[in-house]
């Protein structure tokens, strides 16, 4: 089986009136880097939170490797949330030890290498770091696991362009061939060359799933340009 994630008739209604996801169907294959793209409020983060077991669907199902979100799937998913949750009083190296303790598949060596490449002092306390550096630390922690599925919610939004290039390179070189990376972003042009596929969502529905090369071949334009056309305000 080549599918890693299967979303079936997924619906999420907040407070009985705000529909965030509306009968969504999609599947995400193994071993691919997939972009989850959509305008603000289209349902990206709601979908991601359901996949991580942080929200319960109102209707429908999400299956990851055949299982509903739970302890079993969480052990195999490495998740970068939209907002950082790192404890301010901890040092970078304490966080590394914490993650290594928490996740069996955490690779301390890999984390240290990345910190060094980005010039981040592991003795620094989180609260002394800039917002961008905190985001880098968080991403390093997430990318240092040997997970089956990496879910990155807006991974590059807060970091400078040079670090962005490094992070993209890190994603390319670090993920193993059978792992899937699902990332949501607005910065499409920065990242489209590394994506296999894109999923466009709008008003809680999947409107298109295609490979980057299909879009370029068929539309003769970049995913970024095509996105601007599809979601023109």
């Amino acid at each position: 089986m080549n599918e890693l994630v299967t979303v079936t008739n997924l619906t999420k209604v907040y407070d009985k009136r705000k529909t965030a996801l509306n009968q969504m169907n999609l599947s995400i294959p193994k071993g691919k880097i997939v972009g989850l793209l959509g305008p603000n409020g289209s349902g990206k983060t709601t979908l991601i939170k359901i996949m991580n077991g942080l929200l319960r669907p109102t209707e429908g199902t999400v299956l990851i490797n055949g299982s509903a979100p739970g302890p079993e799937t969480k052990a195999r998913i490495s998740y970068l949330p939209e907002r950082t949750y790192l404890r301010n009083s901890m040092k970078v190296k304490e966080l590394i030890a914490y993650f290594a303790d928490f996740y069996e598949d955490f690779k301390t060596e890999r984390a240290k290498e990345m910190l060094e490449s980005l010039g981040i002092d592991e003795n620094a306390k989180i609260k002394t770091l800039s917002k961008g550096t905190r985001e880098k630390v968080q991403l390093i922690l997430v990318m240092s696991r040997d997970a089956d599925l990496f879910i990155l919610d807006e991974p590059i939004a807060g970091v400078d362009p040079a670090a962005r290039d490094y992070i993209i390179k890190t994603i390319i070189t670090n993920y193993n061939e059978n792992a899937t990376v699902l990332l949501s972003t607005h910065l499409i042009s920065d990242i489209e060359n590394v994506l296999d596929e894109v999923i466009f969502i709008k008003d809680g529905n999947m409107v298109m799933q295609a490979t980057v090369e299909e879009i370029r071949e068929e539309k003769g334009k970049s995913v970024d340009a095509y996105f601007r056309e599809v979601f023109a305000c």
Partner: peptide, 9 residues
């Protein structure tokens, strides 16, 4: 990694 493109591509 050098090109900044998807490994499958």
């Amino acid at each position: 990694a050098e090109a900044g493109v998807n490994p499958n591509t």
